[in-house]
Amino acid sequence: MNIFRLCGDMSHLAAIIILLLKMWKTRSVAGISGKSQILFATVFTARYLDLFTSFISIYNTCMKVFFIGTVYFTIYLIYMKFKATYDSNHDSFRVEFLIVPVGGLAFLVNHEFAPLEIIWTFSIYLESVAILPQLFMISKTGEAETITSHYLFALGSYRALYLCNWIYRYYAEGFFDLIAVVAGVVQTILYCDFFYLYITKVMKGKKISLPA
């Protein structure tokens, strides 16, 4: 464990807590993409299959349980409890255009042609594009609530911090995973225009409103 990865995990944790707080306090899921949450649930389920078979540390197990539990709770809030506030018209990204290519790529490009490894690779590739329905929804509605902007900033920062973690681990431990790094770079790049909007607008107390 290193400071970059710890900050990354804390940023990821903060993003999930911000999202849950937004939903619970406002009792609304307006502006939140249910499809992205479903993709995240798929990512966590596929990645944490070894939750019960390989024990890394208490921290690792607790975080995995928390991530899986909260993402399914988020889906419950969106599609059941606060269903009336779910904006399905604007959450119209065709996720099959993500899942099929990502699934195919996981078969072709992986570290080892073994079921668990291919599923893990699928979860890494899927995570890099899982935020697209959410960003697409914001571009369609033309604006994002400030709390949603904080959620996205924390979520985008988590993988950017992981990139720093991989740089550190490469020099400190000789650890290197090309698949995770490339997917992490793609994932972070997808947030760049949002980061720009966040830093130039939200930090100055304005709302994010994309030119509709």
């Binding site: 995990d9 540390s57 570290h111 995973d177 090309l178 995770a180």
Partner: peptide, 10 residues
């Protein structure tokens, strides 16, 4: 391409 390792990251 990658050092064989235990998947210890989230």
């Amino acid at each position: 391409l990658s050092v064989a390792y235990k998947k210890d990251e989230l």
